[in-house]
Amino acid sequence: MKENTDTDTQSSGSEVAERIRRSATSDRPYQFLLRGTALFFGAVIVVFVWSVVHTAWPAISTFGFGLVTGSSWVAGTGPYGALPLLTDTVLTTLIALVFAVPIGLASALALLFLIPQKIRSTASSLIELLAAVPSVVYGLWGLWYLVPWFTKTLQPFLAGVTGGRWPFNGPQEGFSVLLAGLVLSIMILPTIVAISRDVISVVPRDLIEGGLSLGATRGQVFLRVVLPSARTGILGAIALGAGRALGETIAVAMVIGSNPQIPHSLFTSGATLASTIATQFGEASGSTGSALAALALMLMVITASVNAGARVLTKRARMPR
């Protein structure tokens, strides 16, 4: 060891440079491996996108823009118009957000500021547990518990209170966009809680203490200081939740009634883009298969843009101000 150090100190500058150069060259396989794998995965993604476009292409070239604007979807024979599916997808997502955003933000605030330190980590792992339950289990639960509850209790109650006026008119069969939205809201809640908790936790301490020192109550500080200063990130959390809701498949397919129609009330059954792909892909052949791939393409474009937007928002929110 001693001798080594001696020879090292004696070696000339050019020799050291040579050694560094050699070690850099011999490290090249490693760099190739990293870049190669990254490139490979990039290629897989390209192939993935291409597979959807390629499968959808026959339908796109035959039906053109009518695929998006057509108001009737009949599997097997056509016509293939995704408008009912698009409206149901957006409607169920909006319903999900109506429930999940207030409850999610409240839970995030409660987890950060209100729940005693001792049980805080238990409480937040309970919310994470909500995310660990597979989608199909929520569907099963909705089918066995929420559908009967809807038909026996909630739908008659809502129709009774409002006198059966819009949007609480129509069939009381349980399977409905409202039920799908409710199930979705449970499924996206963990996403909204986790992300909004992250972005709320970086609200500067000074702002909160400044508000309190001016005599504002804690409630006022939450509403007027914490939420406004975290609003970009909260929007990002909502967008991420919306992205999940738009693409959620199995649970929705099990409770929405799989009946592609433009909804005329919250009680009508429906079908979303994703649920239609799931329920009809098995029997699909030829033009239906291609039209379903076109639905997949629409779903991909919509969710990718929502997620990209969410990414920009949450990234901006985490940046130091």
């Binding site: 991420l240 991909m300 990718a304």
Partner: peptide
């Protein structure tokens, strides 16, 4: 690639079913 990876984590899983079906 980082942006793509992040967007991929949010894509509906059923799209990968379509991909595996086709390929």
């Amino acid at each position: 690639l980082r942006a793509i990876v992040e967007i991929m984590t949010g894509l509906p899983s059923i799209l990968l079913g379509v991909f595996a079906y086709e390929y």
